[in-house]
Design a protein around this nucleic acid. Structure first.
Lengths: 123, 123
DNA sequence: TAGAATACGCATAAATTTATGCGTAATTGT
DNA sequence: ACAATTACGCATAAATTTATGCGTATTCTA
């Protein structure tokens, strides 16, 4: 397992958000779980670009950090469901705000990406 | 200069935020510039943990992406000032919301970090 | 009874971001 | 004259995150 080497900065609230929620799919996962897509396979179908193992890892971290709970059912076919914790619920308004900001400014943000040579092969 | 190789996902607004504002100090920089710390040296003093060259790079990207403007004064000692653009102003409420969320949940978020073995040497 | 679906996992490679070594130049204050 | 300040920049190393090769196991379905 990877361990961080560089001390983290936690002077202000922004850093907590960054350290805990920076993962590629984390915010989307919390969002979709709040929309009642609870099962790994459902989430997988909803976010097909996310590799299963990457998604798993991000879900594990969300559980470890207390944003979601994982319920395992010992049915014949093992079944897993996720649900938001209280902390996850508190995160939701932020996600909606960010999402809304992104959609409202999609046009200009897209232009921003397009004029960045770093993105020229991928956007 | 580095160029991305993996296609970016822009299905939802969350991705724009991630692609454009993921940098280690970007949100803090926008925040402090909004607080009238306009000059590089002022920002440097406010965020001493940020290496000058890393900070410079992040500022350059913020300019390129249209969140801030850079004004260069051709005075005897060259002087530089940053200011928020309209897009930067629109970003500000998000930053404040995230910051507030982080501070309100600082205790529990800190615990989350502490129980993550990945952070055990650095938090 | 073969194939699809469900879930979990280790080791490593590749991509990406962040840090740092080493420099340049002009001006101000002492 | 000399240290301190302001600003800019290239090349690479190091840290961190994301992706992928290769596997295990069980159960339902056609």
């Amino acid at each position: 397992m990877y361990q961080k080497k560089t001390p983290v900065q936690l002077d202000c609230g922004l850093h907590f958000f960054k350290e805990l929620l920076n993962g590629k799919w984390k915010l989307m996962l919390v969002y979709y779980i709040s929309k009642n897509l609870k099962r790994p396979s459902e989430l997988q179908r909803k976010i097909p670009n996310a590799d299963r193992r990457v998604m798993d890892q991000q879900l594990q971290e969300l559980v470890l950090h207390g944003f979601i709970n994982k319920k395992t059912f010992n049915t014949k076919v093992p079944k897993v469901e996720y649900e938001l914790t209280e902390l996850g619920e508190k995160l939701l308004p932020l996600i909606l705000t960010i999402e809304q900001w992104g959609e409202e400014n999609r046009f200009v943000l897209n232009k921003a990406l397009e004029k960045d040579p770093k993105f020229e092969n991928v956007v």
